[in-house]
């Protein structure tokens, strides 16, 4: 069990998302940085799709009520365990009663915004419609369908499954496979249905200008500010299914990228879609930071997914090897 000590946590239990319930009007939810969650799980020897705690407001404090192996992935939050430094992307064994504290993400050019607490055996909440991710609208999944609060006690793994070989770590994907465009964090985008309805200047601006992530950005969507995107002729669309990553453009001409908690349908025009393989990059981009969209096609998008897959395959293979033979290397 872990007890949440922070007051306004806004942390949620997430896994890789709820796939297959779109037909019930249920969006995918899931970790904003799916690579960090999957890698953290693999580091502990978990299934890569196990649930973890996504932490996005700092400082964040929790107490291990039982001894439990854990790993923090995602943002480097200069964490401490009973005051002792805890490295990001590294596995540890916590003793009963120890307090884990995460500070704000460490400043610097590589600053990212969300951290994942993975625990041996995964966060033990019931799967709802095939996933442990928190779906806030409709209050289902995760911990009672809501974000965590002070004094919540969250179950971790099974007794006997909480001790793992720990004390090693991973190179984060941002360092293995960085993506910058003119020095600005990049995300690859495929044009979407209404792309050709935007005027030439708007289409050019999409690729050539930097976009700022406004404070009105959260797990539902990232509202960007930049040049106004205008259509040659206004379009009224019928409600249709959408997915995380879709870049909608409301009347203001300022794009909104749908994120993990986005509703599964919408009606605004879509100029593009941030590809699945790069959604974690956007999910980690801090409010106030600048991003660039990099045009890509179907083949590029599949190749990017394959690179993510290769990263996780390498993590799985090398961590399994190290666990069996820590002398490796």
């Amino acid at each position: 069990m872990i007890e949440i000590l922070s007051q306004t946590a806004l942390a949620t239990v997430q896994d890789l998302g709820r796939l297959g319930a779109l037909g019930f009007g249920v969006g995918t939810s899931g970790a904003m940085d799916d690579l960090a969650l999957a890698a953290g799980n693999l580091l502990l020897g978990n299934d890569e799709a196990d649930a973890a705690v996504e932490i996005q407001v700092f400082p964040f404090e929790l107490r291990f009520q039982v001894a439990c192996a854990f790993a923090l992935t995602g943002a480097d939050c200069a964490a401490t365990l009973d005051g002792q430094p805890v490295m990001p992307w590294w596995s540890y064994q916590a003793n009963e009663g120890q307090v884990l504290r995460l500070g704000p993400p460490v400043a610097g050019p590589g600053r990212i915004s969300r951290a994942y607490l993975c625990t041996a055996g995964g966060i033990d909440v019931p799967a709802v419609l095939g996933s442990r991710s928190t779906q806030l609208r409709g209050a289902l999944g995760g911990y009672e369908g809501r974000s965590l609060r002070q004094h919540d006690v969250v179950r971790v793994g099974q007794p006997g499954d909480r001790v793992r070989r720990v004390g090693f770590g991973l190179v984060p994907p941002a360092q293995v496979d960085p993506l910058l465009q003119d020095g600005v964090a990049g995300m690859r985008v495929m044009p979407a249905a209404e792309y050709d309805h935007y005027d030439e200047a708007s289409r050019a601006a999409l690729w050539e200008q930097s976009w700022k992530i406004t404070p009105q950005s959260d797990r539902y969507g990232y509202r960007l500010s930049g040049p106004k995107l205008s259509m040659t002729t206004p379009l009224e669309l019928r409600s249709h299914g959408i997915v995380p990553g879709v870049i909608q453009v409301p009347h203001s001409g300022q794009p909104i990228v749908q994120m993990r908690d986005a509703q599964p349908s919408g009606g605004y025009p879509k100029i593009g879609t941030v590809i699945k393989a790069d959604l974690w990059r956007l999910g980690q981009a801090p409010i106030g930071s600048m991003i660039r969209f990099i045009r890509c096609d179907w083949d590029d998008a599949l190749a990017a997914e394959q690179r993510n897959r290769t990263y996780l395959d390498n993590v799985r293979r090398l961590t399994a090897l190290y666990r069996s033979r820590p002398g490796l290397a």
Partner: peptide
């Protein structure tokens, strides 16, 4: 010590 994506102490 880095070996591929693995970090060892």
């Amino acid at each position: 010590l880095r070996v591929g994506v693995l970090l060892m102490p």
